[in-house]
Design a protein around this nucleic acid. Structure first.
Length: 575
DNA sequence: GCCGTTTTCGGCCCGACTGTTTTCAGTCG
């Protein structure tokens, strides 16, 4: 059973217990357990085999036993017992905005068990007869159902980022804003973002609100108050804005950046010091009352509880508060540390721009080098380069080196890993490149053992310098292929192969927790855009953000090196 | 159900907003 399946079961247990009206802390235990399992870099079965299940923060005797049952039999009587008590649609009810566990309980008791029935009952005005629900609740529920039908999806980091930039640009142009920042999961650079949260300071909040709700991209105004407004955008994402006083900007930014789990742990840590943290500031609680400690900046908030400021990407309750206490927060990699991009495509395969155009665009970003990594021949759909064309391609690269001086252009390839683990160019051809990154582009549905063996075999080839987009996922569209990522990373460490964090925002592959696991195994990383056009080169920032979420430091990423150092550190450079 | 710089028992983050209410419950972030 996969971690994802186990996490879903615990999450559903939490939801069902909540509807039942169980102790909220028991509910939270299961919710947190589900989050924990999702964030693990390796299968629970592996952890269990090492006998370390109980050492996971939040796993006790009861839940450890349930995990073992699931791993052994794939079934959990406790879970199945709960499922008997509810119609299968209970989870769909809870997805409706404005509908929580209490309302679900009420609905079920009234015999409403499907979303269709709920919709009909609301339209017929039958809900208002129930105690606790009124006419407004009916409208809210109908709107919530409509919202789920039309949108309901989280956006990729790239889409959310563009939308936030549009909003911020618009506000700067039409409203008297002073400080302004997008908070929430976007600021933490999560791979998917549910809504946009903008925080602003201004001495004329009403004008900011007016400007916000009248943006062209607004499709519906959900709320329009003096200091807080909410809109639905034409992109299908909700955007919220709040104006806060300058002395509370840091407090609000910290608060609305989250994550929820980070804030819970931080406040718990504060309470132990008799300090209260909220979105207005940090306060020392004494017998005489409260004394304000700060709140204008995030630094003041963390300093109030004796901690250093920490980057938003770390705020996931993955050990960052403990690390901060002990003074061992990582010094995270920055975008400005990146000196080159080692995966991109030119017109020789499926890219839109020539080698020279890509080189000039990269140079404009301040890079010292690039590798142009066109596809290998079996990628016919992507116009992979046959061996016969490689000499002419090399000639063009050499011409580009002369035409675009000041940036090193490595002659690279993104070679296909075939189903049997062999590579799509023979070794003597691979030897002629300056840089080889190997990737899987076919046979997604292979069984896990075979896929793992396939990739590891490719890593054993002495001409492979790096592994590209290691799990093949496309966020929200294609699941990662079944692969034992831990075994792959160990093989990469053994053979000295670098592993890519693909920065393309629909991929972000390795993902954050896998990057962190790679770091723990001593694997060297590359952050590459996989650009198919010059204007995609700036997507690098999403790869860097993902690396930061994985606690990655500059020294662990090879494309922070100078070209001279890089060439020595690549696998072929060490031969 | 978990956990321990108060604790093996008694806690478990904090506040705003909304709607349905006569003082609060439910939901959300």
């Amino acid at each position: 059973m996969t971690n994802r399946e186990i996490a879903r079961i615990f999450s559903e247990i939490g939801l069902m217990l909540e509807v039942k009206g169980e102790n909220v802390f028991k509910v939270r235990t299961y919710e947190r357990l589900a989050d924990l399992v999702l964030s693990l870099p390796e299968p629970l079965a592996t952890i269990r085999a090492r006998g370390e299940l109980r050492q996971l923060q939040g796993v006790g005797d009861s839940t450890a036993q349930k995990i073992e049952q699931l791993l052994d039999s794939g079934a959990l009587p406790y879970y199945e017992g709960l499922r008997q008590e509810f119609p299968p649609t209970v989870f769909e009810f809870l997805k409706i905005p404005g509908v929580g566990p209490k309302t679900v309980k009420l609905l079920l008791e009234a015999g409403i068990t499907t979303v269709e029935q709920l919709e009909h009952a609301a339209q017929a005005g039958q809900l208002r007869t129930m105690r606790g629900l009124g006419e407004k609740s009916e409208q809210d529920i109908l709107r919530g159902i409509g919202q789920i039908k039309s949108f309901g999806q989280r956006a990729t980091l790239g889409v959310a980022s563009d939308l936030a930039e549009t909003i911020v640009g618009h506000l700067r142009a039409c409203a008297p804003v002073e400080q302004m920042e997008a908070a929430g999961s976007l600021r933490r650079a999560k791979e998917s973002v549910g809504d946009i949260d903008i925080l602003v300071t201004s001495d004329r909040p009403e004008e900011v609100m007016d400007c916000f709700v009248h943006m062209e991209i607004v499709s519906e105004v959900i709320a329009h108050g003096p200091t807080k407004s909410m809109v639905m955008t034409t992109a299908g994402m909700q955007a919220d804005i709040r104006v806060v006083p300058p002395e509370s900007f840091g407090a609000a930014l910290q608060y609305f950046t989250g994550s929820k789990e980070h804030n819970i742990k931080l406040r718990d840590f504060a309470v132990r010091q008799k300090i209260k943290l909220n979105e207005y500031g940090a306060f020392k609680v004494t017998a005489k009352g409260e004394k304000r400690l700060g709140g204008a900046t995030e630094e003041e908030m963390y300093a109030a509880v004796g901690l250093p400021w920490m980057p938003p990407e770390l705020r996931e309750d993955q050990g960052e508060i403990e690390a901060a206490r002990e003074g061992r927060l990582p010094k995270l990699i920055e975008l400005s540390d990146i000196r080159g991009d080692l995966q991109m495509h030119s017109t020789w395969s499926d890219g839109h721009h020539t080698v020279e155009e890509m080189a000039r665009a990269a140079k404009a970003l301040g890079y010292a080098y690039i590798a142009v990594t066109d596809h290998s021949p079996s990628q016919t759909i992507a116009n992979g380069v046959p061996v016969a064309n490689l000499a002419r391609r090399l000639a063009e690269i050499e011409a580009a080196r002369k035409a675009a001086p000041g940036i090193a252009i490595l002659n690279g390839t993104e070679v296909d890993i075939k189903r049997d683990g062999s590579l799509d160019y023979p070794d003597e051809v691979l030897a002629q490149f300056d840089f080889v990154i190997a990737s899987v582009h076919s046979g997604w549905k292979m069984e896990e053992g075979a896929m793992t063996a396939r990739i590891i075999k490719a890593l054993e080839n002495p001409w492979v310098d790096a592994l590209g987009h290691p799990t093949g996922r496309i966020i929200g569209q294609r699941e990662p292929y079944a692969v034992d990522i831990d075994a792959v990373l160990r093989a990469a460490a053994k053979h000295g192969v670098a592993v890519e964090i693909n920065a393309y925002p629909d991929r972000l592959d390795l993902k954050d927790v896998h990057a962190r696991h790679a770091k723990s195994l001593g694997v060297k990383l590359l952050i590459n855009t996989d650009a198919h056009a010059a204007d995609q080169l700036p997507l690098m920032r999403f790869g860097v953000a993902t690396a930061r979420r994985g606690w990655i430091e500059k020294g662990e990423v090879l494309n922070t090196l100078t070209v001279r150092e890089l060439v020595k550190r690549l696998r072929r450079g060490r031969r």
